[in-house]
Amino acid sequence: MATGSRKTVRLKTPVRREDLEQLELGDVVYLEGHVYTAREGVYRRVITEGHKLPEGLTELTNVSFHCSPAASVNDDATFNIGAVTATASFRFGALIPAWFEASDCLLILGKGGMTEEDYRNVFVPRGARYLTTVGYGTGALLGRGIKNVKAVHWLPELGIAQAIWVLEVENFGPFLVDSDGEGRSLFEQHNKRLNQRIEGLYDGLKQPALSRMGETVDRREELI
């Protein structure tokens, strides 16, 4: 697709550190090879419950995806996969160090990025990067990039939406590079620009009579 002034990068999996080093914030990335889905259910089984990832998975690829597909299981145990879309990644922030240990991943795909603190402290020392899906919801475009469902693990335990879907992909994208080698985040850079305007948006609007829990963190205070 037309990417305007953006640089487009094609990566093969398993991804190599030296290829990731070339990525700059806002580059458009397409993947070829294998990726697998891992979200709440998989993190819980691996990190909290101590299960090992299925054999051969970490050798096959080092790219995992905060995602679950719109998919179904046919009567003959084959799979019908339509669209794939990411889920918001910030909720996995605290689990990422343990996830990297367990999975040896170098590339995390997801929605909306993680914090610069996570990038600096956890991603940069490993040479890992984060790519965000675009939109969100380019589910059909991403679905087109899936050539084959190579395997589905833990389907009985986790259900369709949370199982590990191992996907063989080609021209799989677009993704945008959100983290760079210094731990900067494209999202946070844009937040900084936006934040300069925010106070001004409220100019002239009077305060409401009642505040809201959350505007103060001191529970002894009244909200009125």
Partner: peptide, 18 residues
């Protein structure tokens, strides 16, 4: 990208968003 995604969904008869 989103406009292209709607087209892909219709052409392939697959969900716009998973």
């Amino acid at each position: 990208a989103m406009l292209e995604n709607y087209k892909a969904a219709k052409e392939d008869a697959r969900a716009m968003c998973a």
